Structures are given as C-alpha cells and as structure tokens.
Amino acid sequence: MLATFAATCLAQTASAHFLLPYTDQTQIERPGDVPMQLIFWHPFENGHVMDLAEPEEFYVIHGGEKTDLMDTLEQTSFEGSENAGQSYKASVPVKRSGDYVVVTAPQPYLEESEDIYIQQFTKLVLNRNGLPTDWNEVLDLPAEIQPLNKPYNIIAGSTFTGRVLADGEPVAGVEIEVEYVAAVPDMAQSSTTTPSVTTMPGGAVVAISDINGYFTFGVPRAGWWGFAALGAGKTTEFDGKELSQDAVIWVHAYEME
C-alpha cells in the first residue's frame, strides 16, 4: 500500500512563486485554439508579479506526440494587485479528442532576495470530449509531478495524489508547496481580479513526498490548485549560484452538482 502524507501548514520565510499557465477552461467541447497566458505570480495572496522571460520550451503532448508551441507566444504584461510584470499570451491547438499535456520549461529566474535561481517545469492538462489519453504519462522532465488523479476534473472535497520525479526517478522527502488561485486572472484585461479567499495563517500550505515520491492533498474547494515540488531536480547550480529546479502541476477542481 502507498504511504502518503497529509498536507500541513508550516511557516515559511517567503511566499510561494508559481508559474501559472492560465486558461479559463480545461475541458474543451469544440475544436480550436485554446487561449492561455503564462504568468509568474503569487496567485494565492494576489501578490507580486515576477517578470517572466521567454521560456526555453513551450509545447504540448497529445497521443504521445510532441508539438512545439513557441511560435504562439506573444509577450505582454500582467497587472497584479501590487505591480505589473512581463508575461506571455499563447494558444494551444485542441482538435481531436483526448488529453493535451501543456509543458512550460522556463529560463532560470534569479530571486534576488534569496540570491538563488528558480526554474519551474510546469504541467497543465486540457481534455477534449472526456477521452483520457496522456494525463498520467511520465515525460522524464528534469523535475516533474506525475498525477495519479485526472487533473482536469478533481472533485472538491476529494483528494489529489501526485508523484515527484526527477528524470523519471522518484524523489523522496521533497517539500511541496500548495497554491490556490484566489484571484482568477481576467485574460481579456490581462489583470487580476478580487480574491475569493484570504491566505492561510501560518504560512504556505505544505506536503512532503514519501519514500517513493508520493504525496496526497485533500482538495477543500473548487478552482485551480497548484503544487510545486521545490528543488526536486538534480541540477543544483546555474551561473555560479544555487538553482532550485521545481516541479509544478496545476489541477482543476469542481463542485458536484
């Protein structure tokens, strides 16, 4: 049986950085190009927006095939509650039925306050017509969270289980920060909205991966939830400074009707 760790609230010295590839929909009914915006932000607290450089890679996996999406990127700005930061608009072609695993591999970001680089390998899964195909496939990224529940139709009040991997190998004892998109981005205005909840007392919400890399989190409400496994990757230095290669996945939860 898989041993899992329940999420707990632990005090943190800094708020969570999250690369958010945001879209209004995860379940696609009609074929077409799905608009998306890449934002490097603090969405739970509706806080500071970091400038996002052009990603090293931006692509989608469908039916086991990789399609490069770099040519869809358009530099823009996202207005948060505190400041505006560079972001990117993009589009994901969704034609046939099945899963579309959107992967963003950003350039390392220098967090000057901590004097370290952060690189978040980020996944988000779209689906068309309810046909599951690629959602739980391992992509052998430098840092990756493999979902064990379909990430585009989590039931609010149930749980989400993921497995932290580095180059396809499980990583034990990794701290996973949990984020909620409290202020849903307005894509038309490229700006934030009023938060629906406040941040938790005691700092970031955190889970720890077990000996086989697994973690489980109870999802309390509908909306977008993000999980960032900090420092999961094997590369720990960039340009003479410490590098944290994080694995990020976003899931969407719904209330049962």
Rank of each mutant, 00 (worst) to 15 (best):
P106D: 10
L73P: 08
A222F: 02
L38I: 12
E255N: 14
L139F: 12
A16N: 12
L243H: 07
S91V: 06
A53N: 13
T76N: 11
M70A: 13
K123Q: 14
F238G: 01
G213K: 01
E257S: 10
W225V: 04
P147Y: 04
W225G: 05
N136P: 00
Q120A: 11
P185M: 08
N136Y: 07
S81T: 10
V60D: 02
S97L: 03
A228N: 10
P151R: 04
A182Q: 11
R221E: 02
A188S: 13
F217H: 12
L52M: 09
V101N: 06
F5S: 09
T194Q: 13
T192E: 09
R96T: 15
Y109D: 02
G203A: 00
A16S: 14
P106H: 04
G98P: 00
P132R: 13
W224G: 06
E114A: 14
Y100H: 07
Y88I: 04
G240H: 10
T192A: 14
D186N: 15
I39W: 05
T133R: 09
Y180Q: 09
D186K: 08
W224Y: 15
S191K: 15
Y109A: 02
Y152N: 14
S91N: 07
R30E: 12
P185I: 09
I61H: 07
Y117G: 04
E114S: 12
A172T: 01
E79S: 14
E74W: 00
H62D: 02
P43N: 05
E57K: 12
V171L: 01
T67S: 13
K95H: 07
A232H: 01
E111N: 13
E111H: 10
R30K: 15
G47A: 13
V92T: 05
T192D: 10
A53V: 02
V251A: 05
G223K: 11
V102H: 03
V174A: 12
H62Q: 13
W224V: 03
G202F: 05
I249K: 03
P108V: 05
L230T: 07
V205E: 06
P55K: 04
L230E: 09
S244L: 14
E257C: 00
H252R: 15
A143T: 06
K123N: 03
P43H: 07
D24P: 03
P201K: 01
L38V: 07
I208N: 01
H62K: 09
V92I: 15
F227E: 05
P93C: 09
S244M: 09
Q107L: 12
M256Y: 07
S244P: 00
I176G: 02
Q12K: 06
R221S: 09
E242C: 00
T26A: 10
T13S: 13
E56L: 03
M70K: 15
S191A: 15
V174F: 01
H42T: 10
A229W: 06
V184S: 05
S113V: 11
E237I: 03
V125P: 08
I61G: 00
A53C: 04
K66Y: 00
V92D: 00
R30T: 14
E54R: 14
V49T: 11
D186F: 08
Y214W: 02
L110C: 04
S158V: 00
D239R: 12
A222P: 01
G202Q: 03
P108W: 06
L230S: 01
T23V: 08
S113L: 11
I208G: 00
G240R: 08
I155N: 07
L19T: 05
V103C: 12
N129Q: 13
P201M: 02
L148D: 10
A172Y: 01
T104K: 00
